[in-house]
Amino acid sequence: MNIVSTKIPDVLIMEPKLFGDERGFFYESFNQQQFDAAVGRRVEFVQDNHSRSAQGVLRGLHYQVHQPQGKLVRVVVGKVFDVAVDIRKNSPSFGQWVGAELSAENKRQLWVPEGFAHGFVVLSECAEFLYKTTDYYAPQNERCIAWDDPDLAINWKIDFAPQMSAKDRFGVRLIDAECL
């Protein structure tokens, strides 16, 4: 596995070693020892999630208070632009974001540690998005930061108004968010 650093040291892009020929391909999508070595600590995943979204759907920027989730995310169908925002109040990178294109083609994964808000927008006709989490989903602890917060100035790589849930349309600005 190739580990790619980002401008926020705790957020990592992981590129698997791909073995392919005319029959297809094989790659190891997760290896606990390699993952722990890459992030520098033991990480335990407790839940796997799978979502499917149409082109132009934007999900996020989601996070949980009291039960923050680390997420290892990847795309198995289609292409997304994926974003992690540091919401750790005492972090030197508080309020900064990292974005990466994840696709079925590039097979990249993004490690979004606890203490980050997370979201993505679908760039292809549809996308199937898989992610492992370090804590269970707790709706009472879920929060949402506005995808278009001017203080974050996220370049979502889109030139259209995204489709989103009511919850996501009413996300709060980072300055008003309950941060970790």
Rank of each mutant, 00 (worst) to 15 (best):
D36N: 11
A37R: 13
A37D: 12
A38K: 01
A38F: 05
A38I: 01
A38N: 02
V39A: 08
V39H: 10
V39Q: 08
V39W: 09
G40E: 01
R41W: 05
R41F: 07
R41M: 10
R42D: 12
R42V: 12
E44A: 15
E44F: 15
E44M: 15
E44S: 15
F45Y: 03
F45I: 02
F45S: 08
V46S: 07
V46D: 04
Q47W: 14
Q47E: 14
Q47I: 11
Q47T: 11
Q47H: 09
D48V: 12
D48N: 12
N49G: 01
H50Q: 14
H50F: 09
R52Y: 14
R52E: 14
A54R: 13
A54Y: 09
Q55K: 08
G56M: 00
G56E: 00
V57F: 00
V57Y: 00
V57K: 00
V57T: 08
L58D: 00
L58H: 01
L58S: 01
L58V: 14
R59F: 03
R59S: 04
G60N: 02
L61K: 06
L61T: 09
L61I: 12
L61N: 07
H62N: 10
Y63I: 04
Y63D: 07
Y63T: 02
Q64W: 10
Q64P: 05
Q64Y: 10
V65R: 15
H66F: 14
H66C: 13
H66M: 13
P68F: 15
P68S: 15
P68G: 15
Q69K: 08
G70D: 02
K71L: 11
K71D: 13
K71Y: 09
L72A: 09
L72P: 05
L72D: 06
L72G: 07
V73W: 08
V75T: 15
V76Q: 03
G78E: 05
K79Q: 15
K79C: 10
K79W: 08
K79Y: 08
V80C: 08
F81I: 07
F81A: 09
D82G: 07
V83I: 06
V83K: 02
V83D: 03
V83M: 03
A84N: 00
D86W: 06
D86Q: 13
D86F: 06
I87Q: 05
I87F: 06
I87L: 06
R88F: 07
R88N: 09
K89W: 11
K89V: 13
K89F: 13
N90G: 13
N90D: 12
N90T: 11
N90R: 11
S91G: 04
P92N: 11
P92T: 12
S93L: 01
S93D: 10
F94G: 12
F94R: 14
F94E: 13
F94A: 12
G95A: 03
Q96R: 08
Q96A: 01
Q96I: 00
W97V: 05
W97N: 13
V98F: 10
G99P: 03
A100Y: 01
A100K: 01
E101T: 12
L102I: 08
L102V: 10
L102F: 07
L102D: 04
L102P: 02
S103A: 07
A104G: 14
N106W: 04
K107T: 04
K107G: 01
R108E: 05
R108L: 15
Q109N: 07
L110D: 01
L110N: 02
